[in-house]
């Protein structure tokens, strides 16, 4: 670098410093808007509950999810959908004047339970699935 160029840079260094300060703050200010400090927490038990009950409903529904076909509500049909041997299930279907229960495996005393409002022949009904696992959580 020649002497003239070096002295030019040195004489402008004050401007460079001011420029860099402004530039740094501009970049960091932008980063503040971009950075995501949101921590999302998913309750995996709730997620598992949802998967289990939706699978049960899907298994015993007619073409429309949530409209239960009572002819499908039996152990043979449910076993076709709930093939995982690590899970035990107890599933109850309540209508106004009837209750059906199907068990697959032994859920024991300590099990999770989820209910949903469903329909049987367009009439109000409730389905409740209890499940437990044979594997340690």
């Amino acid at each position: 670098m020649n002497k003239k160029g070096g002295s030019t840079l040195a004489s402008k260094s004050g401007f460079y410093i001011i420029f860099l300060i402004l530039f740094t703050f501009a970049v960091l200010y932008s980063v503040k808007f971009i950075e995501d400090k949101e921590v999302r927490r998913v309750d995996f038990f709730q997620l598992e509950d949802s998967v289990v009950i939706n699978r049960v409903i899907s298994c015993v529904s007619n073409d429309n999810f949530g409209e239960i076909d009572v002819n499908k509500f039996n152990e043979i049909e449910l076993r076709k959908c709930l093939t995982n041997t690590n899970f035990n299930f107890i599933i109850m279907l309540d209508t106004v004047d009837d209750q059906k229960i199907v068990s697959i495996g032994d859920v024991g005393l300590d099990y999770r339970s989820i209910g949903r409002y469903v329909l049987v022949d367009n009439k109000k009904a409730r389905i409740r699935a209890g499940y437990s696992k044979n594997v340690p959580e």
Binding site: L28, K32, E35, K37, E38, V39, R40, R41, V42, D43, Q46, L47, S50, N54, I57, F65, G66, E67, R116, Y117, V118, L119, N122, K123, K124
Partner: peptide, 28 residues
């Protein structure tokens, strides 16, 4: 100076309300 506070957001599935609402309309 400009420390951004962390926001904790719980993700809720809430599919029970959706299924209920749909079936509610179809109930006799």
């Amino acid at each position: 100076l400009y420390k951004t506070d962390e926001v904790l957001k719980e993700i809720k599935i809430n599919d029970e309300q959706d299924l209920f609402s749909l079936n509610y309309l179809k109930t006799k």
